[in-house]
């Protein structure tokens, strides 16, 4: 089909995935977290076990007034949600879904440097929460912003190192290439890298147990305190889109992406199943573990994750060269 139509179709598909899958993950979080806590979660919205709860939330947020505090730095405050959200949309462009009934890979654009592109996009998203914390004109947001800066900076390094280890084993930075080069024994040899990547990713997203910046018992809501209405919804969508990007990256890098029976035809389905499984792990970690203290967060990054990631790179180098 002509190029323009192809490009537009891909963009529309990526946008559709970006709007729908985070909501699915959000609803899964509502229900899975509820049942883990011996309760049922939303039941009323939409009739059948509250499937439309997040849609109802979206409608509620849209009709709310977006207030900017007087002491806030107006432009910084108002731009922060967009800066937090847009990078995840951009990152989704390069993440492959897998073969679609023999038609080739479903992907926005297969970049040679796909891995670096996605990691770079995720690191820009950091600035969004930071701007929110700084620009709110609120002590608690300020402290939350400082915690965000320290945490996200510390955890970028182990994440990049763990991803670099897989790229080394595959010999390419392209995400499609890495998924195609995947071998089942990588589950064992890359296991430390998988754990480091997953934990560092959780901390990048400020998901519990790493939500010290948003600690609601201590900081109200940290950098998000002064946000309400559509801007707050953007931040929340950014969090769930981040979970989607993290799960998709973990799947494609460490779990083989679309590997599985009949992967030529339903490879995309395997990827989706694995992405949802990893997202379930993210939700499970939230329910099972208490929040880490700020100094524990930093010492975990520098004293545990970075050495393990470096050891993983050494191991991968030995395996690749040998």
């Amino acid at each position: 089909m002509p190029d323009v139509v192809d490009v537009v179709l891909r963009c529309v598909l990526v946008l559709a995935v970006f709007m729908v899958l985070p909501l699915v993950i959000g609803q899964m979080e509502h229900k899975a977290m509820a049942h883990m806590q011996s309760r049922v979660g939303p039941m009323a919205a939409g009739g059948f076990h509250g499937w439309a709860q997040l849609l109802a939330d979206g409608v509620k947020f849209v009709q709310k007034e977006s207030i900017t505090p007087v002491a806030a730095d107006r432009r910084v405050f108002e731009l922060a949600p967009a800066v937090a959200l847009a990078p995840y949309l951009v990152a989704l462009l390069a993440i492959p879904l897998g073969p679609f009934f023999g038609q080739g890979n479903l992907i926005g654009q297969d970049l040679d440097l796909g891995l670096f592109f996605v990691l770079a996009a995720m690191s820009v998203g950091v600035l969004g929460t930071l701007m929110g914390g700084l620009g709110s004109g609120n002590k608690y947001s300020y402290i939350g912003g400082m915690r965000v800066a320290a945490q996200l900076m510390s955890y970028e390094l182990p994440m990049v190192l763990a991803a670099a280890s897989v790229a080394m084993a595959a010999g390419t930075l392209s995400l499609v290439g890495i998924a195609q080069q995947w071998e089942p024994w990588w589950l064992i040899t890359q296991l430390p890298g998988l754990i480091v990547f997953f934990v560092a990713g959780l901390a990048e997203l400020q998901r519990p147990p790493f939500d010290a910046p948003l600690a609601d018992a201590e900081l109200v809501m940290g950098p998000l305190t002064e946000y309400g209405g559509m801007r707050f919804a953007m931040f929340l969508l950014a969090e769930y889109a981040g979970i989607l990007v993290l799960s998709a990256l973990t799947t494609v890098l460490f779990l083989g992406g679309w590997a599985g029976p009949f992967s030529d035809h339903i490879g995309w389905l395997w990827t989706l199943v694995k992405v949802m499984a990893v997202a379930f792990l993210v939700i499970w970690a939230r329910v099972a573990y208490p929040r880490l203290r700020e100094d524990q967060v930093n010492s975990l990054a520098w004293k545990v994750l970075v050495p393990v990631a470096l050891a993983q790179i050494t191991l991968t180098t030995v395996l690749v060269v040998a």
Binding site: L113, F116, S123, V124, L127, G137, A149
Partner: peptide, 27 residues
């Protein structure tokens, strides 16, 4: 992409972190 990852993602965050630690009011 390395420029974005390192400069925008880390160096500017460090700069802002240093700004915050010196307790400057943004106004």
């Amino acid at each position: 992409w390395v420029q974005v990852l390192v400069y925008v993602g880390s160096v500017v965050v460090l700069v802002i972190f240093a700004l915050m630690l010196t307790r400057q009011q943004s106004t």
